[in-house]
Computed example of a mutant assay.
Amino acid sequence: MFENPSHDEICALLKKSNRIAVVGLSPNVSRPSFGVAKAMQGFGYTIVPVRPKVSEVLGQKAYATLAEVPGSIDIVDVFRAAEHIDAIVEECIALKIPAIWIQDGIINEPAAERARDAGMVVVMDRCIYRDFVGICV
């Protein structure tokens, strides 16, 4: 059975991270992905939008895939349905990304376990913004 890291481990991850690639970041201001990413950007994180067919979101160049993102990524924050998590985890493993955050309401335990077995920090079914504000600030 999958268990998230402790609150202390989550805070340590968020405090040491700077660059968050947001998979499924919508340019629509009414979507949760936009609000969460904008808030995290306001807290000083560099947000990298990963969404095909969009040129930019929140003033940042968007990329169609994680593999296209130049430079390092500290956390991949995922706003995609559970059936898409497997492919995203495989891409994260291939790119040696250290952490994946699967947003509130999205659960794919086999994919989360594969990511963890590959050495990634995995947070699932939690909101990165709520955790940052609620347990780390």
Rank of each mutant, 00 (worst) to 15 (best):
S33R: 01
D131P: 00
S55D: 15
L13H: 01
A39L: 13
A115N: 03
D8I: 07
G105W: 06
S72T: 15
W101I: 09
S33D: 11
A111S: 15
S30T: 15
P98K: 05
P27M: 11
C11W: 02
F43K: 15
R19P: 06
D74F: 06
D8F: 10
I73C: 06
W101K: 08
V78C: 10
Q60D: 11
D117S: 15
F132S: 11
T65N: 11
E56W: 04
L13N: 02
R116F: 05
N18T: 13
R130G: 10
K15T: 09
L13P: 03
M40H: 04
I20E: 04
V133R: 14
N28A: 13
V137M: 15
A112D: 02
I128W: 02
E9Y: 10
M120P: 05
R31H: 14
I106H: 07
Q60C: 12
H84R: 11
E56G: 12
I47L: 10
I85L: 06
R126G: 06
P49C: 07
R126D: 08
I47D: 01
R51W: 06
K16Y: 03
D77T: 09
D125L: 09
A87Y: 09
W101S: 04
R51I: 14
D86A: 08
V50W: 01
R19Y: 05
L14F: 14
R19Q: 09
L58W: 08
C92Y: 03
G71I: 09
I97N: 02
I106D: 03
M120H: 07
A64Y: 06
A94R: 15
F132N: 11
M124V: 03
I97S: 00
H7Q: 15
L95M: 11
V48S: 05
M124K: 02
I88P: 00
V137R: 12
A21F: 01
C92P: 01
K61Q: 14
Q41E: 13
A99T: 05
I135Q: 09
V23D: 03
D74R: 06
P27D: 11
S55Y: 12
K16L: 08
C92L: 04
P70H: 07
C127Y: 04
M40Y: 08
A87Q: 13
I100Y: 00
P110W: 07
S26D: 12
N28W: 12
V50G: 01
G35Y: 09
R80C: 02
K16N: 10
L13D: 01
K15A: 14
D104N: 15
I10Y: 02
P98W: 10
R19K: 14
V69Y: 00
D74H: 07
D131C: 09
R19S: 05
L66S: 08
V48R: 00
I47W: 08
S26W: 06
C136Q: 07
V78P: 01
V76G: 01
P110I: 03
